[in-house]
Design a protein around this nucleic acid. Sequence first.
DNA 1: CGCTCGATTGAGCCGCGTCAAAGTGCGTGG
DNA 2: CCACGCACTTTGACGCGGCTCAATCGAGCG
Lengths: 224, 224
Amino acid sequence: MRDFAVEAGGGALRPTVSDAISLGPGLALQGTRMHFGRNAEIFGEGEQAEYLYRVVSGAVRTIRFSSDGRRQILAFHLPGDVFGLEPGAKHTLSAEAIGEAEVSMVRRSLIDAAANEDVAAARALLTLMQRELLATQEHALVLGRKGAGERVAAFLLKLADRVTSSCEIDLPMSRADIADYLALTIETVSRAFTQMERDKAIALPSSRHVIVRDRCALELLEAA
Amino acid sequence: MRDFAVEAGGGALRPTVSDAISLGPGLALQGTRMHFGRNAEIFGEGEQAEYLYRVVSGAVRTIRFSSDGRRQILAFHLPGDVFGLEPGAKHTLSAEAIGEAEVSMVRRSLIDAAANEDVAAARALLTLMQRELLATQEHALVLGRKGAGERVAAFLLKLADRVTSSCEIDLPMSRADIADYLALTIETVSRAFTQMERDKAIALPSSRHVIVRDRCALELLEAA
DNA sequence: CGCTCGATTGAGCCGCGTCAAAGTGCGTGG
DNA sequence: CCACGCACTTTGACGCGGCTCAATCGAGCG
């Protein structure tokens, strides 16, 4: 149940996530698998957007820098997630592997060709885009309207829904990543975790391993 | 130079904004014009998404409510802007006229039909979507990383770029709207305005009328 | 064993939210 | 035309939450 981030090299046991990117029910484009090391840049802001990406294993963050030089993480991408979709020619943000990660890449020329012939494919791209828009809107709402504890609670709940049906989460990212995603400081994130542990809402066997003890308490916290 | 929001009924002098929605160079769909009164709901969250909209005159806000019941304004739409684009069946947010507003509406069935035959139209929709995604990401960054004064400065600068090339802005929205957009309180927004006036960065002949006196000072403030 | 990086904990300060009270502009009705 | 009321804006006082600075702790690794 641990370690969806490692095991580089072997292609044997990967039940759910293949190398293909699905563009609607009838079409899936085969991609090239590539490996990225810890903190390796997958693509950078301003570069030509040559590929569409999909996480096979590990986790990926997309980032941008604000004018004062601080890092803002826009999203985390887990196995199965598609990222790097940009209709324009250039990337408007950067993407980095968080730990060791395997990523499947499909050339944009192939995507474009598929979208040009197949209307369903074009629609699939639009849907992909909308999912990202919705997530970003939701995130903006969290940043604007919630306090520190509520942000962390919301983050954990969303992650728990995404990563597993069980109540155990292996965080692929550091406190610094969480802080830069939630627009908080490391210290505040850390304090929020300890507080939630004190309230018996979660357990923290190690700093990267979270057990959701009382989901309702978290949901209550999130709503605050 | 004032009053792009009023003059209901007459269709005479409207140089820049027509009733049509452009979907690429070769295609523009004619819409039906409709009038909405101050604070009137154009569509609500959860309703069927039957139309694509375009602001002809006036201004429109799109809103959502956070779990604690507070209003969050996701975007302001000015004359020429398209809004209400949602690939899904239902609207995921609400839209309201801020003042008196004229809006051009095109049935989604027409949009879909156009996207199905014309690849360029589908691409135009994708581009429209991306523009919104970029704006939302930028906004999330502002909410997360900037202080009150910087948010208001950034807001004014973006508005100034959008509404006119001159340095005079007629705010279509109230302080409460600005506050709910920037995730601040009315009081804090008001204080930011007065502070900027004190610093000679802007002048405030009336609360809705802003003159940008020193654009550099604003840009400096925004970067802070 | 000791170094290093990440996480935790504490003390103090500052910005923004809250509550409260004037002040301002505008439409309505006398 | 003036008086009134209402909605919006501005200004002030005060408290709290999260940032800053700083020290300690813990785990992985050479």
